[in-house]
Design a protein around this nucleic acid. Structure first.
Lengths: 138, 138
DNA sequence: GCTTATTTCATACTTTAGTATGAGTTCTCA
DNA sequence: TGAGAACTCATACTAAAGTATGAAATAAGC
């Protein structure tokens, strides 16, 4: 937010400077009109591109961000969410158990809870639902 | 491609018109310098935004396209690819069988072939691999 | 301190997934 | 027309996945 304010301030300053500069140049006849127009055109073209890029970049990031509020809403615990992420990478219960240093039956319990909370019948469906809810990275 | 050429042509024409217009206006003293500068600034700002938007839009579309060459490379048949897509939506073998009007054992055969061709141990892993290879929509 | 949620684990069970094998049918292409 | 690929299906099996239940340990909050 601070950056945006700073950029707009700089923009206004640049605009005023250009105004005065062009006025002075034209009245004294030191430089051609074409050059001034070209400079103005280039400056504002660049400004347009930069601002547009910033806005689109923010939009992109929003779509990739994980919806932490949704995770809370669903009542997923830390461990359950962890297991869900491992499921999405394609690991089996046994592999997840080894990775998290717990028994396979523990993972089964977590998986069952995750399925209930996500309202899924299978782990493959859970992956899809989780991605739609944007609670795991695509 | 035609659109791009057309846009650039229109851009050049607009530029020349602005040149002549500003020159005329300034020499005859009909309008203020500020107004002309403002118009030029706005026009090129808009041009910058539009061009930037077009480029980014194209980039976005490229990342969402399905890699048909990869599907051929992997040797996936039509039916196998169809089954793979259904797996990715979270359906069980039985549900896929009902959807495609074939028996469950047929689906099992297809799934087995898909797993071998994608070098996956499980269907969840197959989903991940398929998404990384960009052969199924994210 | 007591309650509650979380994490852990086990056992027993049902269901689904996946493998292996064989075989019949259809379609294409040389 | 005949060889090969693709699609279909069945049976029998093993391996995972998922459910249900109970229970113990721990951490967090009132």
């Amino acid at each position: 937010m601070r950056k945006t304010i700073f950029i707009f301030a700089a923009l206004v300053v640049a605009l005023l400077v250009l105004f005065q500069l062009s006025k002075y140049s034209l009245l004294t006849g030191n430089s051609s009109i074409e050059a001034i127009i070209a400079i103005i055109a280039i400056v504002f073209f660049v400004i347009g591109v930069i601002i547009n890029k910033r806005i689109l970049h923010k939009e992109k990031n929003v779509t990739q961000e994980i919806n932490h509020k949704k995770i809370e809403e669903l009542g997923l615990s830390k461990r359950e969410y962890e297991v869900l992420c491992e499921i999405a990478t394609g690991l089996s219960n046994k592999e997840i158990a080894e990775k998290l240093f717990v028994s396979e039956s523990t993972i089964k319990t977590h998986v069952s809870n995750v399925l209930v909370k996500l309202d899924a019948k299978r782990r493959t469906q859970a992956i899809q639902i989780a991605k739609e809810l944007q609670i795991i990275p695509i």
